[in-house]
Design a protein around this nucleic acid. Structure first.
Length: 424
RNA sequence: GGAGAGGUGCCGGAGCGGCUGAUCGGGCCGGUCUCGAAAACCGGUGUGCCUUCGGGCACCGUGGGUUCGAAUCCCACCCUCUCCGCCA
């Protein structure tokens, strides 16, 4: 949510932001409704002042004198009711527009669609194969650890089953990610994945991206597409103290995505699927831009350390305006090298929101002087599987079709060093 | 799913339909006292919006209704707790 005062002060900034983010919201109309509402509310307030004063007088009158006074105030009542109705008619339209106004991107965000994304740096060495490498599906099916056909049988397209060492590898990556974050002082939390509307609105996924969520409509609940939703919502409607900030959390949950509008895109393998598990880091910090920027670098570095530990080659990308969500100030994606795609594929996403989510969630803190401010929020993937299994399987494959397990994952797999073919 | 109880300020807990934005207690902040602390005493302690900066308006789970006037009455919904049932 954006501060309406900021929109009043500098509407062009928001008109421009909506344009570069490709979000359809009529700022001019919003301001027009806003000024009407301001005027009506002022009139209502004045009428109420009058009514309250008259009411107090009535309380002091008795018997005969009371009736004429009551009759007089009754007239005010109809005026108030009329104003109330007018306001009631405008408010929904105002709210619907407000909830769609995007957060302006940072100045160093490139303008354009995702083709305008800017690579910031590359890390790691891309493996050169001295044999013909297989893709993760060929490898996984031959090893008996990936069973896409049965996943589809149970749940339809974009579903999968991991078995045996495949399921273990999946868990190992997640546990490594969680442990590394706990070691950095992040507090592990277990959170609901089926959440109410206010959590979805509060974190900025509703209303614009409602199509992407699975809805349990009978209960007005939604399955989350990321644990960012429940974790960032933890302190909604709370007033935190400055001393307890920043709050740092790590949570692993299953994530559910409809992938609406992605029909026909990335249909092969484990890349784009309807459910996956993700370990996410979330920071709630003081409402200061530089503080946010520093934390943004921090959460990016946290993930990069795990990637480097796994020796996965990746690059960091500064996402362009058209690739940002409504609430993003800036987003850095980490893309990991995937031999089967012969390119880097998105595996992580580090977002900075400033107070966009905090305003929607009504999440504030009291500073040393006792003043209230909205918090800032950020998040980044630590590891999401099975997508990360694509580079792991493909880059660690051997000529005989076996997979060498990356050393940091072995402790989580009972010391297993290699995945060999097996019937499960 | 069935039955009952309840949702008030940081917490506990009052609140005849007008004098209640809200008694009181605790906590917290400031002060007095003290070498310092404790105790005691004194004072302060909600949020949002509008403002001609005097002030005004709104908010006692949410939304409606009754009334000149509602935290207080009525209706619906949401949530919490207790007991029973079912169950990972």
């Amino acid at each position: 949510m954006i501060d309406i005062k900021q929109i009043r002060t500098d509407p062009d900034r928001f008109i421009q932001s909506a344009k570069v983010k490709n979000i359809d919201v009529d700022i001019r109309k919003l301001l027009q409704i806003d000024s009407q509402l301001l005027d009506l509310r002022k009139q209502l307030q004045d009428a109420r002042t009058e009514q309250n004063a008259a009411g107090k007088q009535i309380a002091t009158l008795t018997g005969e004198a009371k009736q004429p006074a009551i009759a007089k105030v009754s007239q005010l009542k109809s005026k108030i009711k009329q104003l109330d109705e007018q306001i009631g008619e405008l408010e929904p339209a105002f709210g619907e527009l407000m909830i769609c106004v995007p957060q302006p991107p940072a100045p160093d965000v490139p303008v354009g669609d995702d083709s305008a994304n800017v690579e910031i740096r590359r890390e790691g060495t891309i493996r050169k194969f001295d044999f013909e490498p297989k893709d993760h599906v060929e490898l996984g099916e031959a090893l008996g650890i990936i069973d896409i056909a049965r996943g589809v049988k149970i749940a339809g397209t974009r579903n999968f089953v991991l078995k045996g060492a495949g399921a273990m590898l999946h868990q190992a990556v997640l546990r490594l990610a969680t442990d590394r974050m706990i070691a950095k002082g992040f507090v592990p939390v277990t959170v609901p994945v089926l959440v109410n509307e206010s959590a979805m609105y509060g974190t900025g996924f509703f209303p614009l991206y409602r199509d992407q969520a699975y809805l349990a409509e009978r209960d007005q609940m939604s399955l989350v597409g990321t644990s960012e939703v429940p974790v960032t919502s933890l302190h909604a409607d709370e007033i935190l103290s400055a001393e307890e900030l920043p709050k740092k959390y790590v949570a692993g949950t299953t994530c559910f995505r409809r992938e609406a509008g992605a029909a026909g895109k990335d249909t092969y393998g484990l890349y784009r699927v309807h459910f996956f598990d993700k370990v996410e880091q979330v920071i709630v910090c003081a409402g200061d831009e530089q503080t946010s920027i520093n934390h943004h670098q921090e959460i990016l570095a946290n993930t990069e350390q795990v990637m480097q530990e796994l020796e996965l080659p990746y690059r960091v990308v500064n996402c362009a305006t058209g690739d940002l969500g409504q609430g993003n100030v800036q987003r850095f994606d980490i893309e990991t090298w995937m031999p089967s795609r012969d390119s880097y594929g998105e595996t992580h996403s580090a977002s900075r929101y400033y107070d966009f989510q905090a305003r929607r969630l009504n999440m504030r803190y009291r500073d040393a002087a006792g003043d209230l401010h909205f918090c800032h929020t950020l998040n980044n993937t630590v590891m999401a599987s099975p997508r990360i299994l694509i580079p792991i399987l493909e880059l660690y494959q051997n000529a005989d079709g076996t997979i060498t397990i990356p050393p940091p994952l072995r402790p989580y797999m009972g010391g297993m060093e290699k995945i060999e073919p097996r019937t499960y």
